[in-house]
Design a protein around this nucleic acid. Structure first.
Lengths: 225, 225
DNA sequence: GCAGTTTTGTAACAAATGGTACATTTCACA
DNA sequence: TGTGAAATGTACCATTTGTTACAAAACTGC
């Protein structure tokens, strides 16, 4: 029941066609796993012994601090790979708790079987290197983001990043609550700072977007943080 | 002038002997580079087109926020590899500024040459996967660490991590200033909280160590943060 | 269009941290 | 052993954020 058409679009198998992929996968032991919405897929701290590739649905990675408070790290959607960077490495342990956002199907490939695949297909090797490297870069960005001390700084950085160089409007895909979790701050604090920035004329708050009035002054906020 | 004896101890070339390594490296184009103490090796934002392996000395990776304030990320010493995870991936750009801690010699291998090496020597491939995976795990830890809101939480987490499960003494390898940078807080604030924790009887501050008196209460701090 | 739910705006106060300054202690080394 | 530099302890106040609470506005499903 692996869907080769979908899986060939995964970062790991990209560049192969369905036939090539099914030929490859026939030579190794694989397994399909299913999860329902909000099911726990992996708990932080579990050992990683296989590569998971999402064939259907989307999952979220969250970090739980000791009080159970949630810091959301990211969403991963089909057909991306899960925890690719944690199969190898020293501690082979999931750093985040992974939960299903909706109905999810995973392709599971044991570590040593996946090694065989990479030895066999150079395309998979290069893809895999690209994938974990991209993940590392994502973490690095996240780290950079969290390094802003103030909420103003985080907002400024977020808006500058989301708006790109040409546009002055940022479409919001998240509620304030979700944004606050992303920033690692409380919702009222975020709302307060957003309100301040609006009163100061830097931005205009819409329901589902934010218009940047003065990009220069906004970027100056970054320099003070 | 590559030193094969040292390089075989690098995470990337581990498992090969000097002869095997020199044979490998003879088939590709490599280059040696030298830097003096506090020389800039790579600026954050530069493109990554080669793998650097430190043959001699140590370097530090630092993130500069826009005001020029320094957030130290890590030290990397010979014979580890540098920015291994950023050769591949989407944005091929250094996330941190790399500076020499002392006199440094680097082995530089262009990206496509390094690909050849991995195709040729499976040992190098597996080593490389382990290396970048370990780096990702390091970043993930760092992220977890920074997610603690309060200084108390960061101190508690740091001490619990450093002391391990048996010992109650943490040897300090850093000054307060260095620790403060590691934590992303100011030095006086760190000193204040350390003082508070001592007054509350949780820890005893020494010049070059910290003794944990009540491990239970310390771990409870983590739950409140 | 209405009722219930979610999202947003905002206020008042508490808590935590930053910035700055300075005295004291420790360290390095001449 | 003495001296200058570095590290540490601490105090004061400003700033930022958290916490809690509540009202208004916007959505949702009927």
């Amino acid at each position: 029941m692996p869907n080769y058409d979908i899986l060939t679009k995964s970062p790991v198998f990209r560049g192969l066609n369905s036939e090539q992929l099914s030929d490859c996968l026939r030579t190794v032991h694989i397994q399909m796993k299913s999860f329902r919405k909000d099911n726990l897929i992996v708990n932080a701290g579990e050992k990683v012994n296989q590569l998971y590739i999402i064939q259907k649905g989307s999952v979220r990675g969250e970090m739980l601090d000791y009080s159970g408070k949630v810091l959301k790290i990211e969403d991963i959607e089909a057909p991306r790979a899960l925890a690719g960077a944690f199969i190898f490495g020293k501690s082979n342990v999931y750093p985040v708790t992974v939960t299903a956002n909706n109905d999810v199907e995973l392709l599971s490939i044991p570590k040593n079987e996946f090694l065989k695949l990479m030895q066999k297909e150079q395309t998979i090797l290069i893809n895999y290197l690209n994938d974990i490297s991209t993940r590392t870069q994502f973490l690095s960005n996240k780290l950079h983001f969290l390094s802003f001390r103030t909420i103003r700084g985080k907002i400024a950085h977020y808006l500058m990043q989301e708006s790109g160089s040409n546009s002055n409007t940022v479409e919001l895909k998240h509620t304030q609550q979700q944004l606050a979790e992303l920033f690692g701050v409380t919702r009222p604090s975020l709302a307060r700072v957003l309100g301040e920035l609006q009163r100061e004329g830097l931005i205009v708050l819409g329901r589902k977007n934010i218009v940047i009035n003065e990009k220069k002054r906004l970027s100056q906020l970054l320099e003070k943080d």
